[in-house]
């Protein structure tokens, strides 16, 4: 474990807690994309299949349970909670996210490190995570008025993978033959997708005005 990875995990945890806080306290999910939340639930479900078979540390297992629990409970809130589900803007959140799942699955079947069931699904989860934010970014562009909590959620979610990239550079430099091109490229693509959001987020933060994404 290194400081970059710990910072990444804490930033990721913070993003999830911000979202849960928003949904649980103000009982609203306005501006949040259910499609992105469903994609993230699939990402964690396919990434953490080894939670029962391999144990690395208490920390590792605990964080996996937190991410699984939070992502599925957010989906549950947005789909079934009587108050929250009414605040979900269904008409705006129209990204065909299933069109993201299939190509990622095909790509995982083609490009992976080992052709085993767990490894292919794990690789699928990496590819899917890279593009999972797209429905949310599209929704933000449509809804224009981004409330602070949603903006912070996307900002933290984008930041965590950035820390992971620093972690991979650190591990590449310190651990002999630590090379994982698939993980690195997927992580880089994921972070680059946030680039324009980060630009406008910093602009709004610097000029101290509401975050507005160009249509």
């Amino acid at each position: 474990m290194n400081i970059f990875r710990l910072a990444g995990d804490m930033t990721h945890l913070a993003s999830v807690l911000v979202l849960l806080l928003k949904i649980h306290t103000i009982k609203s999910c306005a501006g949040v994309s259910l499609k992105t939340q469903e994609l993230y639930a699939i990402v964690f479900a396919t990434r953490y299949l080894d939670i029962f078979t391999s144990f690395y540390s208490i920390y590792n297992t605990l964080m996996k349970l937190i991410f699984l629990g939070s992502s599925f409970s957010i989906v549950w809130y947005m789909r079934y909670h009587k108050t929250v589900r009414r605040t979900y803007d269904r008409e705006q959140d129209t990204f065909r996210h299933w069109f993201l799942v299939l190509p990622c699955l095909l790509l995982a079947l083609l490009i992976h490190e080992k052709f085993t069931f767990l490894e292919v699904l794990w690789t699928f989860s990496l590819y899917l995570e890279a593009v999972a934010i797209l429905p949310q970014l599209v929704l933000l562009q449509r809804t224009r008025n981004i409330d602070n909590l949603t903006g912070q959620y996307v900002f933290l979610l984008g930041g965590y993978r950035g820390f992971y990239i620093l972690n991979w550079i650190y591990r590449y430099l310190t651990e002999p033959h630590f090379v994982h091109w698939i993980t690195w490229i997927a992580g880089l693509v994921q972070t680059l997708l946030y680039a324009d959001f980060f630009y406008y987020y910093f602009q709004s933060w610097k000029n101290n005005k509401k975050l507005q994404l160009p249509a």
């Binding site: 990875r5 080894d50 690395y56 540390s57 651990e175 033959h177 994982h180």
Partner: peptide, 10 residues
């Protein structure tokens, strides 16, 4: 060997 791959990462 376990530390070697990224499976120890979240």
């Amino acid at each position: 060997q376990q530390e070697e791959n990224t499976k120890d990462e979240l």
